[in-house]
């Protein structure tokens, strides 16, 4: 299955107009995934962790210079809004880490094949295509988007549309600050946004997830088309409009007020 996964993923480059096919052969070092491609994949996969180390450095910079955000989306106003990392966040993250490791070990020791695909136990064979090619589970929603485009759109081939949409579906997250211009940072105080999030985006992602792992046949194709349609509408059409017309609920004065219900400083501020 990994062989076919590699074939599909590198095949995406073939969708690029004009240069697609030569590019694909150049990237693979051949016409199909083979020794050369395997070596390259391997190099990439040990290289990427070092790239991630770089991002860790960025993370530490971001934490110390711009500072961290918080679930209320309200800026820190006074000392009483904050707690020291030790012991408060060590204790909080400590037990959630434990809970995560518990679930993780439950999978490792008792359900080791649950998230895998049986075909991964079959030796790669370029001569026999599996009936259904599916990627790893965490790619399912995006795979469903890729396959949702079944018709050419004017002069754009369906395959290219699917590839653009699949990458676009992730790229769109990077544009969120411009798409959602609401002055209120937390969805907690945005009733309309919350409705679209819980009754729109979440079910839509669930459908995409399910359809991405299902065979490419009806009714899954039509379902993933509806869900993918909502996905793009949500980020590119609904969010910009919602953030313009929505009337947010009143924000708490400070984090302290959000957590405890009242804040001495708030009273002083309004009195003074």
């Amino acid at each position: 299955m990994s062989f076919w996964g590699a074939k599909v993923i590198t095949g995406l480059f073939g969708a690029i107009p004009l240069v697609g096919e030569p590019l694909q052969i150049w990237l693979l070092g051949g016409f199909a995934p083979d020794d050369a491609a395997l070596n390259r994949f391997f190099s990439l996969h040990y290289l990427l962790p070092f790239v991630i180390v770089g991002v860790v450095v960025l993370h530490i910079w971001a934490l110390h210079i711009p500072g961290s955000s918080n679930p209320t989306g309200v800026e820190v106003k006074s000392e009483s809004d904050t707690v020291p990392f030790y012991p408060y966040f060590i204790a909080k993250d400590g037990w959630t880490l434990g809970a995560f490791l518990f679930l993780y070990c439950l999978m490792v020791f008792f359900l080791p094949n649950q998230l895998g695909h049986p075909d991964n136990y079959i030796p790669a064979n370029p001569m026999s295509t599996p009936a259904h090619i599916v990627p790893e589970w965490y790619f399912w929603p995006f795979y469903a988007i890729l396959r949702a485009f079944t018709q050419n759109f004017f002069f754009i081939p369906a395959k290219l549309m699917g590839v653009m949409a699949m990458f676009g579906s992730i790229l769109v997250w990077f544009f969120l600050p411009w798409l959602d211009k609401s002055p209120v940072r937390s969805g907690h105080y945005r009733p309309l946004f919350r409705k679209f999030f819980w009754f729109g985006l979440i079910p839509c992602m669930a459908v995409l997830f399910y359809c991405g792992g299902a065979p490419a046949e009806e009714p899954y194709v039509v379902l993933s088309q509806i869900a993918a349609l909502y996905y793009f509408a949500h980020f590119l059409i609904i969010l910009p409009i919602v953030s313009a017309i929505e009337k947010p609920k009143p924000l708490p004065y400070s984090i302290t007020e959000a957590v405890l219900g009242s804040d001495e400083n708030a009273k002083l501020a309004t009195a003074g």
Binding site: F149, Q151, I156, A158, W178, F232, A233, P240
Partner: peptide, 18 residues
């Protein structure tokens, strides 16, 4: 953004209709 959104959604709606 709405134009880009329309591009994708209309293409999908076309696939969906067919």
């Amino acid at each position: 953004s709405i134009l880009v959104g329309l591009f994708f959604t209309v293409a999908l709606a076309w696939s969906l209709l067919v």
